[in-house]
Write a protein that binds this DNA or RNA. Structure first.
Lengths: 247, 247
DNA sequence: GCCCGTGATGAGGTCAGACCACTATTATAC
DNA sequence: GTATAATAGTGGTCTGACCTCATCACGGGC
């Protein structure tokens, strides 16, 4: 029989680095925000070349797990979890993501997240949400500020849902939509209505009414979508239909 | 006076590579599955060192946009879109993702996706789904094969939903759960029931009954979760029924 | 005394070229 | 004809030098 040499992927230096850092994170040695040793020293510790170490670190940086600052050092990411910033944009270019699809995904995710938040939200979440709603009413004449508090409001709901995975997915999609939103928010004439809507959502969550929260969130996002003229185009499928691609 | 070597404000080489490839993808020069030129030649074309080129390619590979095959070449990813394979696992280690959270996320996503598939699925999707259901019944005595067709079935539903963004998110979460599933599927005594369930889901989708499909999918995933003892830990009382549920 | 330029320091970024390892194909031996 | 061996092509790793950037301490000028 032909000799099978199927070695383990343990060989690749890149994965060696990734796994090492992973274990450091898992056993608590590395915490979000921590700085890792300088490349030259770290490479010596791991008994690999600096070049290989760098590919490994680059890999982690691409996934958003590490953050590199030229001239300063390399750190473990500490912000809200986000699946590779450029990832979605890249995927969009590759597989032809449409804006309406982003809205659809966001609507499904956020409406369910709102329901979860209504079930599990704690007092501090309610307080923070109330705060942001108030800020929205106060920023009625400043679209840019309004948008900031809008984002914050939604982010708090994500946290209140108690499911960080869903929160990160939303975060990724939202950040991809952010640029588009920023361009159109100026012409928004419905900030008052939007603020009211947010307040209603807040109330539904605070009063622990999951279904109401879900419904309101759905409605809210639908309005936002319409306001940007990003409705799903009529069902005229240019369907590529590659069932074989599933393989 | 040593004049300052005022080079272009070209951003980091890594991003230079990423953007270059991105533009190649956007203008259609590179299609999924295509092979990019050998590193040495490509580096010469871009007028950068091979090391820098490799950094950029590594970045794209980490995001799942490119696939590297040692000794063969580097290709544009062609399978189902997937956000960095290791990404979720890494994030889990960093932010403490729990298995029950993955199930929750998956349930929310897949039940809604099933509903969308019921609305938008086309004949070829229905056919492919029927095929997989049949394979499941045929593989009843081979857990490994059964699992494969199980995965395929769900993947076809994702495609049928007509929203590739949701499909990729699911794909990412599912692949993270795959290993855990593989370990427990052997003891599954409910493959028959599982197959029946899949058939019912298929029927709901084919008959364009979104709400029914959603409900069935929810139920199906809940069963799968229970079968693995990955229920969400109750907030208050301990669940003693879990052990019995496994059989 | 305070401010600001300037150099020293340490970190990541890039480069070049040699050499190693894997895969698939082709040539050769049997 | 088939199995083994040689080979070409491609990614993977190493070395070590040099470049760029961010920060801080020092010291002259105000």
């Amino acid at each position: 029989m032909p000799r099978i040499k199927h070695d383990e992927p343990t060989t690749h230096r890149t994965m060696q680095v990734v796994n090492h850092i992973r274990s450091l994170i898992e056993n608590g040695t590395l915490q979000p925000g921590d700085k890792i040793p300088p490349e030259r020293e770290f490479a010596r510790q791991l008994k690999i070349s600096r070049a290989s170490l760098r590919t490994g670190i680059g890999y982690l940086a691409a996934m958003g797990v590490m953050k590199i600052r030229h001239g300063v050092g390399t750190f473990v990411a500490d912000g809200p979890p986000e699946f590779g910033k450029a990832s979605l944009g890249m995927m969009g270019a590759l597989h032809g993501f449409q804006t309406w699809q982003m809205f659809e995904a966001r609507t499904i995710l956020e409406s369910n997240i709102a329901a979860l938040a209504a079930e599990r939200g704690k007092d501090e979440h309610h307080a923070a949400m109330a705060e942001e709603v108030a800020e929205m009413f106060a920023a009625m004449n400043s679209p840019a500020d309004f948008l900031i508090h809008d984002l914050l409001f939604h982010r708090i709901i994500s946290q209140a849902s108690g499911n960080p995975i869903l929160a990160s997915v939303i975060e990724t999609i939202t950040s991809a939509l952010y640029d588009k939103r920023r361009k159109t928010v100026e012409r928004s004439t419905d900030m008052r209505q939007s603020a009211e809507m947010h307040r209603e959502i807040y109330r539904a969550i605070r009063n622990r009414k999951p279904n109401e929260a879900r419904k309101l969130m759905e409605e809210h996002l639908h309005q936002a979508q319409v306001a940007q003229g990003q409705e799903r185009p009529p069902d005229k499928k240019a369907a590529t239909s590659l069932v074989a691609a599933v393989k």
